[in-house]
């Protein structure tokens, strides 16, 4: 029953006090949101903080939600704004080496550790380093496109930029990543 409802219906139900609707909605987007934040801020603690803060903003704004806005876009927009604020507070960012260490220790399963599968690890390591080297706007646009499957319009809506700007950011991000793999 809950699985057949759209994100907007679940959010409206939760706005009326249905906690179970929120549980269904949380289950759908917990992973993608968390990874978006983790890609964005590059450390798990900040990702956890932003993750919890993002859902808190959703909970507080439950009664003001209107179905005209797509829930995924609204959710990522909140997360993006929080991530931007966090990045502004924590500059300079962590270095590439630190980021690589985090990925290596926390995210990779034991069977897929780079030392176990060198070629696969090398490829993901290069991708990870390429993402880290991207500017924040290009990385965000790229993650929203790859992680969350958003189109140009939705990325523009989440990030508050124009579609052509988003497309340009994506183009630059895509080119840098391809260049890293070509090395």
């Amino acid at each position: 029953m809950r699985e057949e409802c759209t994100d907007e219906e679940l959010m409206l139900a939760y706005g009326r006090g249905d906690a179970h609707a929120f549980e269904a909605l949380y289950t759908r987007h917990r992973g993608t949101l968390y990874r978006f934040l983790l890609r964005h801020c590059r450390e798990r603690a900040s990702a956890d903080e932003l993750f919890q803060e993002t859902w808190s903003r959703v909970i507080v704004a439950r009664e003001r939600y209107r179905p005209e806005a797509k829930f995924t876009t609204w959710l990522l927009q909140i997360a993006h704004n929080l991530a931007i604020d966090l990045l502004r507070r924590h500059r300079p960012h962590a270095g590439a080496e630190e980021t690589e260490l985090v990925f290596r220790q926390l995210d990779a399963p034991e069977a897929e550790r780079p030392d176990r599968v060198l070629s696969e690890f090398e490829q993901r390591r290069r991708l990870q380093l390429a993402l880290e080297d991207l500017p924040d706007e290009q990385r965000t646009a790229f993650v929203l496109r790859m992680e969350n499957g958003l189109g140009l319009e939705e990325i523009a809506e989440v990030t508050g930029a124009g579609q052509e700007t988003v497309k340009s950011r994506l183009r630059y991000a895509f080119a840098k990543i391809r260049a890293r793999f070509a090395e």
């Binding site: 939760y14 906690a19 929120f22 549980e23 949380y26 917990r30 992973g31 968390y34 990874r35 983790l38 798990r44 990702a47 956890d48 993750f51 919890q52 859902w55 808190s56 909970i59 990925f103 926390l106 995210d107 990779a108 399963p109 897929e112 696969e120 490829q123 993901r124 991708l127 990870q128």
Partner: peptide, 20 residues
């Protein structure tokens, strides 16, 4: 194929408890 990071159970419980 990049690591599919997810929030841990404690974070899930905190968010759900906050929502309830």
């Amino acid at each position: 194929r990049l690591p599919q990071a997810e929030p841990d159970a404690k974070l899930d419980a905190a968010v759900l408890n906050l929502a309830r």
